[in-house]
Amino acid sequence: MMNSPLIRALLLALSLAFIPVSAVQAETLDINNASPDQLSSVMVGVGPAKAQAIVDYREANGPFTSVDQLTAVKGIGSATIDKNRELISVSPAPAE
């Protein structure tokens, strides 16, 4: 009975429930390199228009130096940043 597919499935589901989200999602989306489609598909509360605004701001003003700088983009507030802080990152500036 211990080899039952149902018991194995339940044990697998139970073990997966205790894996920290950070262990599952190790990589973040770099807002300095992401396309509008990538931004809108990964970021919570960011649709196509806000994602395009992020890219437009980046193209007009240069790369972001921190995730918090997203508040400079119209329609992006600190609440949106807080919801996405663990999903996004900023690549370091290239060395000169």
Rank of each mutant, 00 (worst) to 15 (best):
M1H: 11
P5L: 08
P5A: 10
L6R: 13
L6C: 02
L6S: 12
L6E: 14
I7A: 13
R8A: 09
A9R: 11
A9V: 10
A9S: 14
L10W: 11
L10E: 08
L11G: 09
L12E: 10
A13S: 04
A13I: 13
L14Y: 09
L16A: 07
L16F: 12
A17N: 04
A17F: 11
F18N: 07
F18Y: 07
F18C: 13
I19N: 00
P20Q: 02
P20L: 10
P20I: 03
V21G: 11
V24F: 10
V24R: 15
V24S: 14
E27Q: 14
L29D: 00
D30N: 15
D30M: 05
D30H: 05
I31S: 07
I31E: 06
I31P: 11
N32F: 11
N33H: 15
N33W: 09
N33S: 15
A34V: 08
S35I: 05
P36G: 10
S40Y: 03
S40N: 11
S41F: 03
M43K: 05
V44L: 03
V44C: 02
V46F: 01
V46P: 04
V46N: 09
V46G: 01
P48A: 14
P48Q: 13
A49F: 02
A49C: 00
K50M: 02
K50Y: 01
K50F: 00
A51L: 06
A51G: 05
I54Y: 03
V55F: 10
R58N: 12
E59T: 07
A60Q: 14
A60R: 15
A60G: 08
G62C: 09
G62S: 11
P63Q: 09
F64V: 06
F64C: 07
T65W: 04
S66L: 06
Q69D: 12
L70R: 06
T71A: 07
T71Y: 06
K74V: 08
I76F: 03
G77R: 03
S78W: 00
S78R: 13
S78T: 11
S78Y: 01
A79Q: 13
A79G: 09
T80Y: 08
T80S: 14
D82K: 13
D82W: 00
K83Q: 15
K83N: 08
N84H: 02
N84S: 03
R85P: 02
R85Y: 11
R85F: 04
R85I: 02
L87C: 00
L87H: 07
I88T: 01
I88W: 04
I88Y: 02
I88L: 00
S89V: 01
V90Q: 04
S91R: 05
A93G: 01
A93P: 05
A95H: 09
E96L: 12
E96K: 14
